[in-house]
Amino acid sequence: MTRLGLQIPNFTYPGVETPELFDVVARQAREADASGFDTVLVMDHFYQLPMIGDASDNMLECYTLLSALARETKHVKLSSLVTGNTYRNPAVLAKTVTTLDVVSGGRAMLGIGAGWFELEHDAFGIEFGSFTDRFEKLEESLQIVGPLLRGERASLDGTWYTAKDAMNNPAPIGDVPIMIGGSGEKKTLRMVAQYADESNLICDDGDLAHKLDVLAEHCEALGRDRSEITVSKQKNCCIAPTHDEARSDMLAFLDRRGFDTSSMSEDDLAPWLGLVTWGSPDEVGEHFSDLLSAHDGLDGFTVNMIPNGFMEGRVELLGQTLAPLFA
């Protein structure tokens, strides 16, 4: 289960052309594998997300990429963060994740969510539907995927999906944990309590305690032992050997996103710099340590290194900084 996960969310790097792209991605995964991360994750999208880059930026298909990274790593679990349920038939998804588990020697995890990025649904001709539709689909999907990942047969005559005594051979090598991503209080966290092994929360730090309380309430209502569920929180990070180097990496990222940081005041920069936990190892380590110690029930983090994860040594530095928190 995730204590320290590295998500690799972007694939457009300065000076890196397509023939060299996988090499840069694989290097990040290898650095994570060697420096104390326990999980490597990639997004399941077809277009880049607006908060990270332009829709036309590079985006690699997640399960093909994860299978390739299985051959580049030895220890880390491998997962999407998270699979868009709307993109695949649930039985086919179970087969895909099982194949990843076999290829990786038992290191697959299923991260899954309802799906939300309407632009890529429309562009690819995938039905988007209403908010309610997508969460109904997710719940039915979990009733098919879950049994198949446990080596059982699955049958369902649902509104959205059907399965008729579906088989999944070979079964996964070991237990494949199911992580549900998101922090919706009525639907998402209730499904975590009912179906999942792990919750990955996307929320402001100030809202974390409340989200943990809501999850505990759902567990109590369903008779689920809350301690059975691992909770990780998604964070954005930029680390460098010194404070000044980290700031330089942050400003370079903002410039690549179309800002002219040289003409911006500190007051103008502050909101953008505040979106990311950045600094030297001491500064970053203190922030994560404080957050972990302040929230009983928070087990770990999934970390994006959007500004500088592609730079050689940065992922390794973050692993060396944060892994001791979980020793």
Score class of each variant (00 low, 15 high):
103 V>C: 10
276 V>A: 05
32 A>N: 13
199 S>G: 04
250 M>I: 00
178 I>P: 07
303 V>I: 14
141 S>Y: 01
2 T>V: 07
46 F>W: 08
252 A>C: 02
145 V>K: 05
316 E>T: 07
144 I>P: 11
307 P>W: 09
62 C>T: 15
323 A>K: 02
178 I>A: 06
39 T>V: 10
278 W>E: 06
249 D>P: 02
324 P>N: 07
72 E>I: 07
212 L>D: 14
317 L>M: 05
201 L>Y: 03
203 C>V: 11
118 E>N: 14
153 R>W: 00
261 T>K: 04
114 A>L: 05
37 F>M: 08
14 P>R: 03
271 P>E: 12
44 D>C: 00
53 G>N: 13
305 M>P: 10
174 G>R: 15
209 A>K: 11
215 L>F: 06
10 N>M: 00
236 N>L: 14
222 L>Y: 12
252 A>E: 08
82 V>R: 01
213 D>A: 00
217 E>Q: 10
46 F>S: 12
294 A>H: 11
211 K>C: 12
125 G>Y: 15
217 E>H: 10
291 L>M: 02
92 V>I: 11
286 E>F: 06
217 E>T: 12
190 R>P: 13
252 A>H: 07
183 S>Y: 03
171 A>M: 07
280 S>G: 08
148 L>S: 04
215 L>V: 12
21 L>A: 15
31 E>Q: 03
97 V>N: 08
72 E>A: 15
235 K>N: 10
110 L>E: 12
112 I>P: 07
267 D>Q: 09
16 V>I: 14
257 R>Y: 04
130 S>Y: 02
244 D>K: 10
188 T>Q: 09
21 L>P: 15
320 Q>W: 02
69 L>P: 08
250 M>Q: 04
1 M>N: 07
99 T>G: 09
158 G>L: 01
264 M>T: 06
25 V>D: 03
49 L>G: 02
228 E>Y: 09
261 T>F: 10
87 Y>M: 11
102 V>T: 08
183 S>W: 05
2 T>G: 04
292 L>T: 04
243 H>N: 10
249 D>L: 03
100 L>C: 07
258 G>K: 00
281 P>Q: 09
226 R>P: 14
125 G>L: 11
207 D>M: 07
221 A>I: 13
94 A>Q: 05
7 Q>G: 08
20 E>Y: 03
290 D>W: 07
176 V>Q: 02
17 E>L: 03
246 A>F: 06
39 T>D: 15
212 L>I: 13
7 Q>Y: 07
78 L>N: 13
270 A>D: 06
281 P>S: 09
28 Q>W: 03
327 A>L: 09
229 I>Y: 01
77 K>S: 14
264 M>C: 10
258 G>C: 01
97 V>C: 05
25 V>F: 00
96 T>D: 09
29 A>E: 15
17 E>Y: 03
202 I>E: 12
166 A>C: 03
227 S>D: 15
69 L>E: 11
283 E>Q: 13
87 Y>N: 11
95 K>D: 14
74 K>N: 09
258 G>V: 03
